[in-house]
Design a protein around this nucleic acid. Structure first.
Lengths: 306, 306
DNA sequence: TAAAAATACTCCATAGGTATTTTAT
DNA sequence: ATAAAATACCTATGGAGTATTTTTA
């Protein structure tokens, strides 16, 4: 293998075309440079320079090899800086999973803030339910995930958790119901047909909704199931029933559907970030920094922007 | 600068994930490999591998740096082979100039034969008159040129010459002349309007044509000048006059034009190759080999294929 | 004669070797 | 107890230095 030191000797001499000055630029003296070039020429089996005692010129062979050498040198010389950026999380890849309910709130917020500070990191996004994300993380897949708040102490020891955003649920009701934007009374909600995620697709969210209804003495009358927030709102606007959705869904306007606060104590949906406590990926460290800034308590109930 | 030896250590260890086996594959023993990796990690400021006494694994940082290292190593390792190919004329660039009359004979022949044997050499073609080519070569530009045979001893000492192809001139006459394909008598040619290159554009060829007419006691009646063989034949087919053209032009069929041998001794157009005797470009050496094979005397009057 | 590359030699930094220790399973 | 990496120490190759010679414009 040709040592890059040799290659630099060649590249610099090819620029200066003067052994003395090239040696100076290389921080060495002339004789070892002469020897180095000679050794290189011997190894390649052809002269790279034509020496005429008073001048040095590239041979056509040397001329044609030079761009190859420059490219290889550039690649090698770029390695330390590339390593530094990867080490400091300024470049690389971040694999982030998220629950569907985060699409209009925590996810865009976080991703925008992170991409702004680490523009050269490739972000790989995957939608999944909270428990699927947790299993994946335990299996060593992905770097972090946005999940519904786990029951306290309900997370495996290997994972760490950061609450990011708490938002009340609001009701999405068909416009045909009338009553304008007045808060929806629990008693009215109990009697109405409900549109909801199937429980396996989002157990924590499902339990949050049915728990609230039960707390007001009713049982969920599930008229329709759907696995996408957008679909649920569409079904509401079609008049098939009402739904309880995160307040951030107000950003998803749909003719025929209307968002109304819940009267009394609304259920709170907490979205947070999980990751392997022991994970050493540098991109994750940078992401956690951004996430901790985004998780300021003051921001908990602030108006959300998509 | 990081030595590529180190990089190879890293790359191989990243594959085997076992210091002992990696050292073996690298033709060294385990301890210096350990030290080498440690030195690399110290230089980068972060661990590349996670050692757990019973197993070695890449850290996320190491994992993300690896492709960069592989690319740089590949570039460096490809250099000797690239040099060999450039040195042996198997790759690189060949700058070839040619006269217009070679377009249907010597040029395609040579270029095809050369490209077949040296498919990775980029051929740069430039059309120019013989004297322009000679000046360019003397100025160090280009590698070789196809020119009209120079008067014997008429070439500068610095240049070398190889006759490639001798072909008789034939007459291109308007179909309207009748007389079918019968040879054209000099006496008839003398009286007819002639279409010819302007002398500055092709002095040697011009003199060949006018010399032949003069040898038969006539002077050229130039009805029209044109600088492209194709244009000349077009003008012939338009009935503006006749032209004397290299026999290889028979390959350029044009309705309204007809090619007829010349009666008696036809002027012979010799096309040959010039190059700087001292030129060391490896691609030229390969090209000259091919040219010498293509210049077999047996081929002088053989039927030409475009 | 002078400028510049080549040659001759000397030295030392470091890559790699051998021997041994440490550590986790 | 054993496999595997780390540590300690030694050796020698070769890259770079100094001094000098060669060469040609």
């Amino acid at each position: 293998m040709i040592e890059p030191r040799r290659l630099r000797h060649f590249a610099v001499l090819a620029e200066t075309l003067h052994f003395g000055r090239a040696a100076e630029r290389l921080g060495m003296t002339q004789p070892p440079l002469s020897q180095s070039i000679q050794a290189l020429e011997a190894e390649l089996g052809a002269p790279l320079f034509q020496r005429t005692r008073r001048s040095v010129a590239l041979t056509p062979f040397g001329e044609s090899w030079l761009p190859h050498v420059r490219a290889a040198l550039a690649a090698v010389e770029a390695l330390p800086e590339a390593a530094r950026r990867l080490r400091d999380g300024e470049a690389g890849r971040l694999a982030l999973s998220f629950i569907g309910t985060a699409v209009y709130s925590a996810l865009p917020r976080l991703v925008q803030a992170y991409a702004a500070r680490f523009p050269d990191v490739e972000i790989a996004l995957t939608e999944a339910t909270s428990d699927v994300q947790i299993s994946a993380l335990l299996a060593g897949e992905g770097h972090a995930g946005l999940i519904v708040a786990p029951p306290s102490g309900g997370l495996p020891k290997a994972l760490d958790y950061l609450p990011l955003l708490s938002e009340p649920l609001v009701a999405a009701v068909p416009e045909a119901w009338g009553d304008g934007d007045r808060p929806l009374a629990p008693e009215a909600a109990i009697k109405a047909p409900l549109i909801l995620f199937p429980r396996p697709a989002a157990p924590a969210f499902h339990d949050l909704v049915t728990g609230w209804l039960r707390a007001h003495g009713g049982e969920a009358k599930v008229a329709q199931e759907a696995t996408q927030m957008q679909t649920i709102v569409s079904l509401v606007s079609a008049g098939l029933g009402f739904a309880l959705v995160p307040a951030s869904l107000r950003n998803l306007a749909r003719t025929g559907a209307r968002y109304r606060d819940l009267r009394g104590a609304a259920p709170i949906l907490e979205t947070g970030l999980v990751w392997r406590r022991a994970e050493t990926a540098p991109t994750l460290r940078g992401f956690l920094e951004v996430a901790r800034e985004a998780a300021q308590p003051s921001g908990v109930k602030e108006k959300l922007k998509p």
